[in-house]
Design a protein around this nucleic acid. Structure first.
Length: 473
RNA sequence: GUCCCCAUCGUCUAGAGGCCCAGGACACUACCCUUUCACGGUAGGUACCGGGGUUCGAAUCCCCGUGGGGACGCCA
């Protein structure tokens, strides 16, 4: 049984990198009928917050990535960590170290100066023929893992291939602080072990932790899971994402009017591929997803492609669902959505001309408010040339069957009778009905309104046209 | 500094020795459609980081450069 996990540390929101890691872990479990476990790595008390935990859950829920087990919290597993540390101390795979932080700092600075890799020198590490000094009084020791002194640690990374580290490169890392609290690399190992994780799918930045974790796992006699390290996602500009630079919460995509399926599809395609396929459902993704087709190199986020995908999903999404998603956005603008025209009908007519839900709200808004077209637009389109045509058209619109086709016929007829081009009528109608110069074809637009509303908005032509124009007309 | 990773169009990528003088998608340009703006359709340009090998043959394998990234915490 395949068991994967997503293990965020709750120090901020769920950003795109984390979301993709979660997606891949989730999909891998789905694909193989396995289990997907959510684990909150909150051992850093100073930086972890309940708000951040909630933000991560919110992001996962928005994306629809449900976990099968958990969430587990590392802060609730302290007794278990202490137990394992005691066992390791007893077994001699870990030992007490009394070196003080400032001493360590000095050592590291020295090493760096000499061009060497800064690392603990093993002074408290017990050796067969070594005489350890007596523990200094009044100092609480840390616990260090006794890393193998030589040989290599290697694993077959499912994304990057074989990776090998010399044990001589690794020092004895601290697994418990002076206050007894366990450290990250140790907790991860115990958790992955206890939770029976078979595939660790995580960010690239953990490659350097992996050899240490494998060594601890082996010291514990635990089964070593398989690892897949995903390369990072860069910002639109090729720069690393950070809090102050482009790292946005997935929930900001919700705010910006993106559909979760568009974000998911985009993320799936970032660093993974299935031949030339670009657009596919989550379900299709689960059937196709494998670790063999993940790119080992970093990927740059491309908003334009996300926009394209979002527009695509907007076009094929159920109009009723879109209406439900747009309604709160209109409410946030204090726009009261009326009975007619129905929001779904407006959306149906506009969906293939917009890129996101907010733009959908933009085009829906004029239907429900007391519209005041901008004067320069009126001036531009309500001209002496067009006003008679407009009047004539408005007058006859009262009798025509209320369907786009019939209205279209009337438009053509009026335009022809006045010897003018189509836009001479279409443009002022657009502005009078919606306040916009760009709308769907006017026949369909008019048909969307109740007849009385359409007539009323068109009737304002005379009132709104400037006196000078009136006189001229 | 040391260790580790990465390297195909502007971007995401296909490509696992001949199917590739490199394919798809986004973006871009032109044209078509057209009641404005879009959508859509058609066409087009742009890439294998450099140098050495291996091989009859390399984008694909090896080595060396170069460039980018990551890690070196009693953070996660």
């Amino acid at each position: 049984m395949i068991r994967t996990r997503f293990a965020p540390s709750p120090t901020g929101f769920l950003h795109v990198g984390g979301a993709r890691t979660a997606l891949f872990s989730w999909a891998y479990a789905r694909r193989h009928g396995g289990r997907f476990i959510l684990r909150v790595e909150d051992t850093d008390l100073a930086r972890s917050t309940p708000e951040a935990v909630q933000a991560i859950f919110d992001g996962m829920r928005w994306l629809g990535l449900a976990h099968d087990e958990g969430p587990f919290y590392q802060t609730q597993r302290m007794p278990r960590y202490r137990e394992v540390i005691a066992e390791m101390l007893a077994a001699g795979t870990a030992y007490h170290c009394y070196m003080q932080p400032d001493e360590l700092d000095r050592l590291r600075a020295e090493q760096r100066e000499q061009g060497r890799k800064p690392r603990y020198d093993g002074r408290w590490r017990p050796q067969p023929d070594k005489h350890l000094p007596a523990p200094p009084a009044g100092i609480e020791p840390v616990v260090r893992f006794r890393n193998p002194a030589d040989g290599v640690v290697a694993w077959e990374d499912l994304v990057k291939g074989r990776i090998e580290f010399a044990n001589s490169e690794l020092d004895d890392l601290v697994i418990a602080r002076a206050d007894g609290s366990p450290t990250y690399n140790f907790c991860v190992v115990v958790d992955d072990w206890d939770m029976g994780i078979t595939h660790v799918i995580r960010g690239d930045d953990h490659v350097n932790n992996t050899p240490r974790q494998i060594n601890i796992l082996q010291a514990l006699g635990a089964q070593v899971p398989l690892y897949a390290h995903l390369s990072m996602i860069l910002g639109d500009d090729g720069q690393k994402l950070s809090k102050r630079h482009g790292a946005v919460s997935v929930m900001q995509y919700d705010d910006a009017g993106y559909l979760p399926e568009a974000v998911l599809n985009y993320l799936a395609r970032l660093g993974w591929s299935h031949g030339d396929d670009e657009i596919f459902s989550l379900q299709q993704f689960c059937e196709w997803f494998d670790l063999d087709h993940i790119t080992p190199s970093a990927a740059q986020f491309n908003s334009e492609k996300l926009n394209w995908l979002n527009a695509h999903y907007l076009r094929r999404c159920d109009a009723g669902r879109l209406a439900d998603l747009v309604r709160p956005r209109l409410a946030a603008r204090d726009v009261v959505v009326g009975e007619t025209p129905s929001l779904a009908a407006i959306i149906e007519l506009h969906r293939d001309r917009v890129g996101n839900l907010n733009e959908l709200a933009d085009v829906a808004e004029p239907f429900y408010i007391d519209l005041q077209p901008r004067s320069e637009l009126l001036a531009r389109h309500l001209t002496p040339e067009t006003l008679p045509l407009l009047d004539d058209f408005a007058a006859r619109l009262g009798e025509v069957p209320w369907q786009a086709a019939a209205i279209a016929a009337l438009i053509k007829e009026c335009v022809a009778r006045h010897g003018l081009k189509m836009p001479k009528l279409a443009m002022p109608v657009r502005v009078l009905l919606t306040g916009l110069e760009q709308t769907p074809s006017v026949d369909a637009l008019i048909a969307l309104f109740p007849r009385a509303t359409a007539l009323e908005r068109l009737a304002r032509a005379g009132r709104l046209a400037s006196p000078a124009t009136d006189a001229a007309a």
